[in-house]
């Protein structure tokens, strides 16, 4: 027999885990989504690791998934980096979600440099989180990001198309977002635990209280007037140079 390896070391390294018998160490990075936190082994994002988010299409709530985290992180000192986002982040929309834009730095990088820039930001240790949208990323480059995130103690998020689901990935957590038949999150891989077999319901859009709701996912504009956006506060519009005419809804 070779050297004796203490079982506790293996358990701490999370290379061996005991199914669901013990609660793993709680991380300090809650996602802000209670149902997601409940199924993740660290009760939040895996700390200083890469999280891969796979999407069928843009605009199905991928930012809403991370915005509570960004809102929390941007209250701190370290900035959040967005590397080669596919569209311009809408400043007012982000501010509505509580993100402090003073701590959000956007990096325009061409296809060749996205992964380089992400790795530099992660490795530097001066960023709280790095969000990257690479067009092409292979197993090797993702592993580099994972190592860099660990070196710089930062959260890394990579947004990719769902077709990469079949490829193996070194990310500590892989989430797949689905919009159909209803918005949900599939945990495809999570280090330190078994991936749950059921989708997690995910309601990415805010619902105003007291709304007359016909369809199950009708998003509602959270205005002061709580009537599904049909009637808005006219005074406020006029103050800001907008004329607003109530129009009946064409359904």
């Amino acid at each position: 027999m070779g050297t004796v390896v203490a079982l506790s070391n293996l358990l701490e390294a999370r290379q061996v885990w005991r199914g669901r018998s013990t609660a793993p160490v709680e991380g300090g990075q809650p996602t802000g989504w209670l149902m997601l936190d409940a199924v993740l082994p660290a009760h939040g994002w895996p700390e200083a690791s890469l999280t891969e988010i796979l999407l069928p299409a843009d605009g199905i709530g991928e930012l809403r998934l991370v915005l509570p985290t960004l809102a929390r992180l941007t209250q701190g000192q370290r900035p959040v980096m967005l590397i080669a986002p596919p569209y311009a982040p809408c400043a007012m929309g982000w501010r509505q979600q509580g993100v402090s834009l003073q701590r959000v730095e956007i990096v325009d990088a061409d296809e060749k440099h996205v992964l380089w820039a992400a790795e530099q930001c992660l490795r530097s240790g001066s960023c709280a989180a790095v969000l990257a949208w690479p067009q092409q990323a292979d197993d090797r480059s993702l592993r580099r990001l994972q190592v860099a995130a660990d070196t710089g103690r930062a959260l890394a998020f990579v947004f990719r198309d769902r077709r990469y689901l079949a490829n193996a990935s070194p990310a500590a957590l892989r989430l797949e977002l689905a919009a159909w038949p209803q918005p949900s999150i599939w945990v495809r891989k999570c280090r330190g635990g078994n991936a749950p077999t059921q989708a997690i319901p995910f309601e990415p859009h805010i619902k105003a209280p007291g709304c007359r709701d016909k369809a199950p996912h009708t998003a509602v504009i959270p205005t002061k007037a709580d009537t599904c956006g049909e009637q808005m506060d006219m005074l406020e519009f006029e103050e800001r140079g907008i004329r607003f005419l109530p129009i009946s809804r064409g359904e």
Partner: peptide, 29 residues
């Protein structure tokens, strides 16, 4: 903070959108 919901992504230039749509809220002129 704008009281009406704003999106999180903004297209630098609007583009035509085709296909079936279901109106959830609006209009906001």
């Amino acid at each position: 903070i704008e009281p009406r919901t704003r999106p999180t992504w903004l297209l630098p230039k609007p583009i035509p959108l085709r296909g079936m749509l279901r109106i959830l809220a609006g209009p906001e002129r």
